[in-house]
Design a protein around this nucleic acid. Structure first.
Lengths: 331, 331
DNA sequence: CAAACATGAGATAACGTTTACAGACTCAAT
DNA sequence: ATTGAGTCTGTAAACGTTATCTCATGTTTG
């Protein structure tokens, strides 16, 4: 829209556009008198510099993009908030995109951001657009992967020891409920690296006891509430339902409880250990434990890697691995 | 960074930049032969048009900004996701900012967006920057207020009948627990319009029975978990604790339960009715009911108003009011 | 058959900034 | 007096696009 330009300000203040620009950027020489006068005029006119023109000219946007699979998920948003905060403090800003766990939308989002000339991309990916992402990383825009790896992409990344935490949690359940094997695994989609790793860790715990996972107690969910519900119905209506469940994320866990509720089974009838942000839920039941992924910590790491990469593009690739805390809250 | 320009493409394809621009925008005349050739070249070079330059030239960004008080709150994000979706479908995109419920950060966010030349602003405000917001609305950038009114600002808006819903809920509690008055009100900050309205509605229900709210059973929270916890400690440690609580938002409700937990009081010892997204929580307790604000519905309305306003700036101001559903889930 | 028109493609002037570059002035040191 | 450095300000050329204006061609039309 026809908003004010530096020209209007210059005219109103009786100086050249160059001078206005200089006071705007506090660069070059400008007398204190004119300086304050120009600033006065800018305030009066309510002038707001055009970031588009500025970025175009400077060939810098000081902008970072982040694309997340689900912006309604507090885990991701808590992480992202820290990133935004740290970037802001360093003069960058963050632009959010939601891929909805959908590779095509992810592609669209990334291309939109590229068009905006982001200087760095933070991605919790669907795992599918490896070729493009690699290409981006090799052509000037820094890429930091978070939470999830992407096949064939080697860049800075901050991930979690999903396998290790899953193994620990399942080992705990096995220890408690014996080797009878009545422990169910509620897995996420194979396309997502975290889901694969969690599933693998869980299985490893079982194998270490010289057993194999009972495939009728393994459910291939897709990180949605609905799939947790489905798993519940599948398992809990049989003659010998499992005694415990390991769930790969929070949404599926909620779905599982919803299923119990619908089946009329008391929520405390079965012990659950779940990955993900379930703080609020643990208030309400005595038999749910979580594998807590500290999103603040992860956000801090992401911000740090982004900023480091931005100031030195030639750095070696860095990989941060955090260990989620298996927090036994069963009372 | 030195990304490719239309010039590079033109050179590689052996045509002028004007021609490349024409195929890019499918405007003007260009032979099918050259057309496909240029597109081929663009694919090969992985060319991504510079949105900054494009917007600058066209004096249109097709961008809408949204500033929310808390992007980790699924209520807001569920609403925003719909807005984004609808805007995308109409060729706009949405840029998110988080004000953290802080007027100064809100101001900063708005100014940033203005600098980016957003064409419309969606705002769930802190209630504090009325002057600026009014000014924006009167100078070409459409403004749509959502969830919360802002003093002195008259623009398109979509809000809820907070007072009505609060009144209904508290009337229910009064009916159930008699007029003994042992119903506690957990209010939000007075600066936020929704909080004021919810508090007022609750008080109205009490007055209708010819009584006044007992001020020792009214707690002035601030929409944070911590304040819910504080309220709990304040009320539940006295000789005659309240029999029921009306809470103005979800976060405070979680805090209240956390307080109960810490005090060792069974969560079902007290009935709660709360505003906000508490879907998951109602799975776990039998004595929590929610006043459900349908975020999808609100998102749809916001998107519709934004799009209408964008295509006809002269429209009359429109105000959509939704009635939250008081959903009695107590079993 | 000239005149009108549709088609195709290149030059070029913006859009709102920043940033050389170049003048002009002041002031101290030679 | 002359130089030179330091301070202040303006002119104008970019940044990567799009859109207007040309100028060529055909291709209809009256």
């Amino acid at each position: 829209m026809p908003s004010l330009t530096i020209k209007d300000v210059a005219q109103a203040a009786g100086v050249s556009t160059a001078t206005v620009s200089r006071v705007l950027n506090a660069s070059g020489y400008v007398s204190e008198q004119i300086r304050s006068h120009v600033q006065q005029v800018m305030k009066e006119l309510n002038y707001q510099p055009n970031a588009l023109a500025r970025s175009l000219k400077q060939e810098r946007t000081r902008t970072v993009g982040i694309v997340l699979p689900d912006m309604t998920n507090p885990y991701f948003m808590t992480m992202a908030r820290i990133v935004q905060q740290r970037l802001m403090e360093n003069g960058y800003h963050l632009i959010y995109m939601d891929s909805g766990e959908n590779p095509a939308k992810e592609l669209e989002a990334i291309e939109l951001l590229l068009g905006m000339r982001i200087e760095a991309l933070v991605l919790a990916g669907t795992g599918e657009n490896g070729e493009l992402i690699s290409h981006i990383a090799h052509s000037g825009t820094s890429v930091v992967l978070v939470d999830r790896a992407v096949d064939g992409v080697l860049t800075d990344s901050v991930v979690e020891d999903n396998a290790g935490a899953a193994e620990e949690a399942v080992a705990y359940l096995l220890g408690k409920y014996g080797t009878s094997g009545a422990i169910a695994l509620l897995n996420g989609p194979e396309s997502i690296s975290t889901a694969r790793e969690r599933s693998e860790g869980a299985r490893k715990a079982i194998r270490r006891l010289g057993m194999e996972a009972r495939e009728d107690l393994v459910f291939a969910g897709d990180y949605t509430r609905q799939s947790g519900r489905d798993a519940c119905k599948y398992w809990m209506t049989r003659d010998e339902p499992p005694q415990a469940v390991f769930s790969a994320n929070n949404e599926m866990t909620y779905g599982f409880y919803q299923g119990l509720r619908e089946l009329g089974i008391p929520l405390d009838a079965i012990e659950v250990v779940s990955f993900g942000e379930l703080d609020a839920a643990t208030l309400f039941t005595n038999r749910l434990s979580v594998i807590y992924q500290n999103p603040q910590q992860i956000g801090e790491a992401v911000a740090e890697l982004v900023l480091k990469r931005l100031e030195d593009d030639a750095r070696d690739r860095e990989r941060r691995i955090f260990s989620p805390r298996f927090e036994l809250t069963v009372r």
